[in-house]
Amino acid sequence: MTATDTRAREARREVARPVRGRVHRSPLLWLATLLLLSFAAVWIYPFVWVLSASVKGQLEVFTAGLSLLPEAFVWENYSRAWVDGNFGTYLLNTILVTAFTVAIVVIRCAMAGYVLARYSFLGRKFVVGVLVGTLFVPAGYTIIPVVELTQRLGLLNSLTGVVVALAGGGHVAAVLLYMGYFRGIPRELEEAAVIDGAGFFTVFFRVMLPLAGPVTATVVVLTFLATWNAFLLPLVFTFSNPELRTLAVGMQAFVGENSVDWPGMAAAATLSLLPIVALFLFLQRYFFEGIAGAVKS
């Protein structure tokens, strides 16, 4: 190897070698970072305060002000919320209601979005318009016919009635998400399955629905949040049977006639938030992929 080749090889190494030095960032970037961190701190602070209040005493909640560090950790608040507040039963009821509601909503909205995205039929645009129009109807306006219909079905004062009421709504956002995502999937996949003899349900459950995994994760998170935190419908459906209450309705157990057990309520709120945070951390990547895929389509 000649000296020229050696120098050329060393030069290529120098070019390929990454530049190690301080990366200069503009002052505007640092300012934007500090501004976003400030907004994040303001946004997160109430949740951190609830977590702190859950281990404080009744008087300290008021005397400590905005301080986050308690003088003494009162872990009995959690046992009082779990046992005295009957939150063990409420948690089981909420898990059952949420699980069945999410399953029904995913299947129903996925099939509706698939049909609206892939099939052309008379009145299709009208159906989509009606669905979008229902987004502007407050949920409280439909509570009376929902209760009346559920009572005629004999499902009032039961967890089944709560599931039917929560899962039987329009869930327009979920339908539109599936509709946008299915519209972007190549039709060749369906045609190949049809040529192999697959019917509608086979194509949907074995081809299309597995491909819509990111949207399904998004719908699961959104429906889980809405169902887990639902208050009005579970309150109406379990008003005469406290044993069927969900966590959101069970919070009222800490509100007395003359006082409110704030530390107990904070502990109960913390217990109810843990499953939501865990689910979002587990599905956050798919959640954002589903939103981006549906919007892009």
Rank of each mutant, 00 (worst) to 15 (best):
T98Y: 03
G154I: 08
V163D: 02
V163R: 04
A174E: 06
R118E: 12
A167I: 02
I144D: 11
G154D: 05
G169S: 02
L176R: 10
A117D: 09
Y181T: 02
V163F: 02
L135R: 10
L135E: 06
G123F: 13
A103R: 01
R118D: 10
G154K: 08
R108G: 12
A174M: 07
R183T: 05
Y178P: 01
E188T: 13
I143L: 15
Y141N: 08
G133V: 04
F182P: 00
I104M: 09
L131C: 06
L153T: 01
V175A: 04
M111A: 15
F126N: 09
A165W: 00
F182M: 05
L153N: 01
R187E: 14
V137F: 11
Q151G: 14
A117Y: 11
K125H: 13
L159A: 05
L135G: 08
L177K: 04
L166G: 03
A173T: 09
V132P: 06
T160S: 07
G140D: 10
L155D: 03
T160M: 03
C109F: 03
Y141G: 01
L155V: 05
G169I: 02
V127P: 06
R118V: 09
S158P: 05
L189V: 08
V115M: 11
L122S: 13
N157Y: 07
A103T: 05
V147K: 08
V147N: 05
L159W: 00
F126K: 10
V172H: 04
A173N: 04
L177R: 03
Y119G: 06
L166K: 04
F136T: 13
Y141E: 05
A139F: 07
I144C: 10
V146G: 02
S120N: 14
L156F: 13
Y119W: 15
L159K: 05
V164R: 00
G170P: 00
V130H: 06
G113L: 11
P138H: 09
G170L: 03
S158T: 14
I185L: 13
A167E: 00
V97L: 06
E148P: 00
L116M: 13
V127Q: 11
T142L: 15
A174D: 02
G129I: 10
I104K: 00
V163S: 04
V106D: 09
V175R: 02
